[in-house]
Design a protein around this nucleic acid. Structure first.
Length: 256
DNA sequence: ATGGTAGCCTTGCTA
């Protein structure tokens, strides 16, 4: 069994204790991180190595940053989403583990929608779709995991009306996410969890965690060859309730 | 009641 997890940690430095204790307990084979918020050279490689894990980090100062943490060393590493020219934002890393191809994705938030941030998000999603199609053609099992900053439907939002104009919920955003599904990827969580109001993110503000008012924006998309092997998909809410928690909580899938 | 919190270092910006 192979356990692939994803977690937006909102600063690996601030979250190091929580991260290490979660890894020790959950024992993922591959963990995709987002918002490490540091340069790759400042990533705590030794601490992870002491738990038996290899790391590939793609970082930048202060913002964004992604990583792949794994029991097996990563092979054939790609550190940028193709098609972005001189992209400076650290939002993508992809590598192979055994026969599996795994990507850690930090998709742009896109707010405020009346600025250049929203077209940047949509353009990034178009690049992702194009690359996802290339990966499909390889016929390898592929897991595209990360913080998509997309609520796929109103069932994934605590207040759909209040959020309808937000970059995470707009029809153009959802259409681009749906395009990934329509080309053949499976939203791993929805295979066995059709019920509404299950979340991976709760804002720090306004008591959102306490009131269970969240969003489902962290996703594992599986190519057909990966979906064939899906055993289950789980949101682990426990880390969100800890001291010094990230505003996101881990979600993982298990493949046979 | 248009707020609130967290993290970075750019004490404003991002989320």
């Amino acid at each position: 069994m192979t356990k692939i997890a994803t977690w937006n940690v909102n600063s690996v430095k601030a979250r190091l204790g929580n991260l290490l204790s979660w890894i020790e307990e959950a024992q993922p084979d591959v963990l995709c991180l987002q918002e490490i918020k540091c340069l790759a050279v400042d990533f705590p490689l030794l601490e992870l190595k002491s738990l038996g894990y290899h790391t590939v980090a793609v970082g930048q100062r202060s913002y964004n940053g992604v990583a792949l943490i794994s029991k097996e060393p990563a092979r054939d590493i790609v550190t940028v989403l193709p098609g972005g020219g001189d992209e400076e934002q650290a939002r993508y890393v992809e590598a192979s583990f055994g026969d599996l191809r795994v990507a850690s994705i930090y998709l742009p938030n896109g707010n405020p929608v009346d600025t250049e941030k929203y077209p940047y998000k949509l353009g990034w999603m178009d690049r992702l779709a194009e690359h996802a199609r290339t990966l499909l053609a390889s016929e390898a099992p592929v897991v595209l995991a990360g913080d998509y900053n997309v609520c796929p439907s109103d069932d994934d939002v605590y207040d759909p009306v209040g959020w309808q104009g937000d970059a995470l919920c707009l029809p153009q955003t959802r259409a681009r996410f749906r395009k990934l599904l329509n080309m053949g990827y499976t939203d791993a969580f929805r295979v066995d969890h059709p019920e509404p109001h299950l979340y991976t993110f709760w804002d720090y503000q306004a008591g959102r965690w306490f009131r269970d008012e969240g969003l489902r924006i962290d996703h594992l998309l599986l190519s057909p060859q990966a979906a064939d092997r899906l055993v289950g998909c789980t949101i682990d809410k426990a880390p969100r309730g800890k001291e010094r928690a990230s505003d996101h909580t881990p979600i993982w899938c298990e493949l046979r």
